[in-house]
Nucleic acid binder design. Structure first.
Lengths: 167, 167
DNA sequence: ATGTGTGCAAAGAGTTTGCACAGCC
DNA sequence: GGCTGTGCAAACTCTTTGCACACAT
């Protein structure tokens, strides 16, 4: 693949997103879909913050530029991004659908803080390898995976310890 | 822990569920909660099929015994089971909340077929070990985790191949 | 008797959809 | 001009909640 490997948690620069812009353009051309200012705004907002964004967050961001944009449009555009292979839907436990760049090369997974909802990404190639082996053992062909750990982050552990000290 | 290790995908026998029955009884006693025939039916239905049951499935099963049971009661009882530590909530991608026995010793994870929705459990202690290491590296204390692989099961691969052959 | 539990129906939260109008090609 | 896209609001799905009555303890 042409684009470079992206370190977890870094925001992709223009060059990194180029590949996804092309994917999207190709998909839209193939389906006869049109480019509109709403879609452009939403796509830009997504590329500017492409990790774990919820519809709400995206809508807020997009409305800074164009207050008239409706949330149905955001839903529809994110579905478009998902279908074109640019974005992936993720459902963490909180009932919201979040979206992230569909980076099929960099398989990052998530550590989620149960107290402050902070999401930390990690990569572990060894886990990837084991996964493949498990799938093979069961005869599955794997398309995607989800690996999340829920716990308490260092900051919240400190806070909890401080609370403990006071009481 | 007193209860035996349970192999993935096997249904626990009476003896296996004993431990959970005790947990539940202790929780209810502590909170001053009451035993009712509805709760008994729901709990039995859950223990009879404790893996990945949805509220719908549970409700259908419970109504075979008592058609008057409302779904609010099933929701409330499953929440009770979750709070008492007997059950765990799981959200796979389909928008339904499913419940399973909260077996904190046997960490089984899931392989999910994207075509027929079949769910296969697997265990991989090595992955568990790696997880712990990753969490430690990030300073997290892990409470729970979720590890799911989405793909195509052997049956559906065969079906797809057959379709291919015919066309 | 007291207060928890239940069933129903309504309310919520998140997401999808139908429709008339707007705007791209 | 034709057809896609948009915004709004209504519809939908799953889950939670308020209320009056039922029933454990």
């Amino acid at each position: 693949m042409a684009h470079g490997r992206r370190a977890p948690s870094s925001h992709p620069d223009r060059n990194d997103t180029e590949h996804y812009r092309e994917m999207l353009a190709a998909f839209m051309a193939k389906k006869g879909l049109r480019s509109t200012k709403q879609r452009d705004h939403i796509v830009e907002a997504f590329f500017a913050q492409p990790d774990h964004v919820s519809i709400e967050e995206l809508l807020a961001r997009v409305r800074e530029r164009d207050p008239a944009i409706g949330y149905a449009t955001v839903y529809r555009t994110l579905k478009l991004l998902t279908e074109s292979g640019v974005a992936n839907e993720r459902k963490f436990g909180d009932g919201l659908t979040r979206y992230e760049l569909a980076d099929d090369e960099t398989h990052h997974d998530h550590l989620i803080c149960l107290e402050c909802q902070k999401i930390v990404e990690f990569e572990e190639p060894e886990v990837e390898r084991l996964q493949e082996e498990i799938a093979r053992r069961h005869g599955f062909v794997v398309r995607s995976h989800k690996h999340e750990m829920y716990g308490v982050c260092p900051d919240c552990q400190k806070k909890a310890a401080a609370r403990q000290g006071r009481n």
